[in-house]
């Protein structure tokens, strides 16, 4: 009974729904974009990396944020390198949420990033400089 009535209720009442926000939170599936073996295997199996934690004050990750990711049964840190979320002016928006896997030491797992990276990441220092060394193209 309830299942039959609820769709009608949906049309009668005004429901405030937000548009698709494409935010990266826990449980978000992410695409590994470097040439690491882990990333490639996970993609082939059809079980992409899943975000477990966002190293951020709020749980929403953007370009340049560090993220904890579950891949093939193991936990790995990664950096967000491209996001599907709507961005401010001059910041590129990608068609997939891209990450670059990182070891605990800060060294990237892969040697090359096969996808363009936003140019604003060049301004970031510290752990990012190693990732920028692997990058092929900037957008």
């Amino acid at each position: 009974m309830a299942g039959r009535f609820i769709p009608e209720l949906l049309f009668k009442r005004q429901f405030g729904t937000t548009p698709l926000l494409n935010e990266i939170r826990k449980m978000a599936r992410l695409r590994v974009v470097d040439n690491s073996i882990l990333g490639r295997q996970a993609e082939l199996e059809g079980k992409p990396a899943k975000c477990i934690h966002v190293y951020n004050k709020n749980g929403v990750g953007t370009i340049g944020d560090k993220v904890l990711v579950a891949i093939k049964g193991q936990k790995k840190r990664a950096f967000l390198v491209g996001v599907r979320q709507k961005q401010k002016a001059m910041v590129p928006r990608f068609d997939s949420n891209n990450i670059v896997l990182i070891e605990d030491s800060g060294q990237p797992t892969g040697t090359r990033i096969r996808v363009p990276i936003p140019s604003l990441l060049r301004g970031k220092k510290g752990e990012f400089s190693k990732i920028l060394a692997c990058a092929t193209k900037f957008v």
Binding site: A89, R93, F94, V139
Partner: peptide, 14 residues
């Protein structure tokens, strides 16, 4: 670009 779609928003009078 490199098999991934990229979209950039530009402000005309920036």
């Amino acid at each position: 670009v490199d098999n991934i779609g990229v979209e950039i928003l530009y402000e005309l009078y920036n």
